[in-house]
Design a protein around this nucleic acid. Sequence first.
DNA 1: GACCAGGCACATC
DNA 2: GATGTGCATGGT
Length: 225
Amino acid sequence: MTVTLDEIYHRLYDAYGPQGWWPAESPFEVIVGAILVQNTAWNNAQRAIENLRDADVLSVDRLYALPVQELESLIHSAGYYRMKTRRLRNFLEHLVTHYDGSIDRLFKLDTESLRDELLSINGIGPETADSILLYAAERPVFVVDAYTNRVLKRHRWIDNDADYEMLQSHFASRLEPDVSLYNEFHALIVRLGNLHCRKTPRCEECPLAQWIPEQGICLSDRGSR
DNA sequence: GACCAGGCACATC
DNA sequence: GATGTGCATGGT
């Protein structure tokens, strides 16, 4: 492609400004949020987090000690609440069993080991693991999500059958490993997806409009999943 | 009242 | 190994 990731980044940044990710008060809260936001609008996940905060259970020990039904009730607004309760507890159990409940000890692992370890926990997939790596552990790992997938493919910047790892290496091979850059870039892509897909369906209003290929499909068309 | 959102695991072919 | 399906709430 002729346009560089650097140009794309600056175009998005100029349009939307800094996004202030991840909106959380601690690495643990990032992890909880990363599980709660899976396939869910952030607004719904945020309510669940506020409920946990109000109940004063936003710590490893207290959340793990919480009865399942109470946890389900507190995170109800995030949707998939039974599944997410299991997933949160899977993570907590792993942390308590192997790291004495200490995020700091878990985060002593090198990036590759930490990623593998997170992926071994049922309920943590590639995007959730990478979100934890970037936004909680502050490792230079690029987070790929549904928007990233759609933007790159609709603009034909990457092969249409590229999988998660291919999308990720598309960024990793073209950008310096920089936590702040990866943080902002991913957040800006999500911002683009949220704004453009929902509220400004006309492609001319998209900051990346000039790079939409001839006969290109507008980003607002989700296509099949 | 549909459609969508900052995925993931599991079943089935 | 690719493809389909269940999970569930709240905003537009």
